[in-house]
Simulated scan of single mutants.
Amino acid sequence: MLSDLKHPNIVSIVGFCDEQHEKIIVTTYEAKNGSLKEHLSNPNLTWTQRLKICVGLARALSYLHYDQHRGYGVIHLNVNSSTILLNENWEPKLSGFKVSIKQSLNRMDHVVLSEPIGTIGYLDPEIEKSKGVACKSDIYAFGVVLFEILCGRRAYIRNDANRLLAPLVMQHYENETLPDIIHPDLKNQMSGYQISVRSLRIYLETAYSCLKEERSHRPDMLSIVNELEKALEKALRFQPRPENFVRPFLVFCFSLRL
């Protein structure tokens, strides 16, 4: 399967070893800047850079789920900020395929009976109900990553009162208090009105839709790629206003209409 995957945002296989009880998969070294997990709270990682990482990852997952050239789809099942590597240009490279499942393209939305697979904090809540996984299990995990990037914190913090990020952001989103938990350095950009309001709104709506409890209510990766590309385009086109037009952060928050 890995030898079939050829995408700029997926690690490339070099070869493998299977001898003398050694089973090793060798991939290209794509982590010059480590994993995304190490940079969630990086004050130097700008909104535009974060968006580019999200778009690259979304394209990788769309390729896994829908590429027609392979004749089958791939459910990754281990999407998290540790399996997203960052190369020297801060481009994302998805890795961690050890629990991935191949599935016929016309059955990607069907449930594959399985024990819960994945990482705590990213697990699809429908797995227990359906007794299996589906491609939209990846969508849920991807939504968690989107909020990790926005909030600058990990999906699961063992000794924190709010250990799990997903229910925390859902609560804040629905109470219209999400700006309270946005990464402080992104807040500074927002308070200076240095990012597009529309870009952030598209991002928030997309991330929230990925975390819908019912799989049927979550978008597919093709739609997600389209929305995140629009968010990135608007962020790149936005030009900061002159200093005398800078809005206070409170006004900015209201303009999001969460």
Rank of each mutant, 00 (worst) to 15 (best):
S223D: 09
I182W: 03
E91H: 11
R59V: 08
A58W: 07
T27L: 08
M190W: 05
S95Q: 06
Y140W: 10
D109L: 07
A58E: 05
S191F: 03
H217A: 12
V112F: 01
H76T: 02
R50L: 05
N159H: 08
V169L: 09
H65I: 08
E148H: 03
V145R: 00
S216I: 06
Y72G: 06
I53V: 09
G73N: 08
N106E: 15
K6L: 13
H69K: 10
C135Q: 11
K212M: 15
D18Q: 12
L165M: 11
V246H: 08
S3D: 14
L105D: 14
I195M: 15
L186G: 04
R163T: 13
L105E: 13
Y72M: 05
V251K: 10
E30T: 10
Y208L: 10
L40C: 04
S3Q: 15
I202H: 03
E38H: 14
S82H: 02
M1N: 10
E91K: 05
P43T: 09
F142A: 05
E22Y: 00
C17G: 00
N159M: 09
E176S: 11
I127Y: 11
P179K: 00
I182E: 00
P248D: 02
Y72T: 00
L150Y: 10
F147K: 04
R257T: 14
L94H: 04
N42W: 02
E243G: 06
D124P: 09
H7W: 03
A31V: 05
Q49T: 07
Y208D: 05
Y140C: 00
E38G: 06
F254L: 14
F142V: 10
I13R: 08
R237P: 00
D185V: 09
V11F: 06
N106L: 07
A166T: 06
V251Q: 11
A155G: 12
R218W: 01
G152S: 06
L211I: 13
Q189R: 10
S130E: 07
M221A: 15
C54H: 01
V145M: 14
S191R: 03
V169K: 00
L165Y: 15
A60D: 07
V251G: 06
S199Y: 01
T27W: 05
A141N: 15
V133N: 04
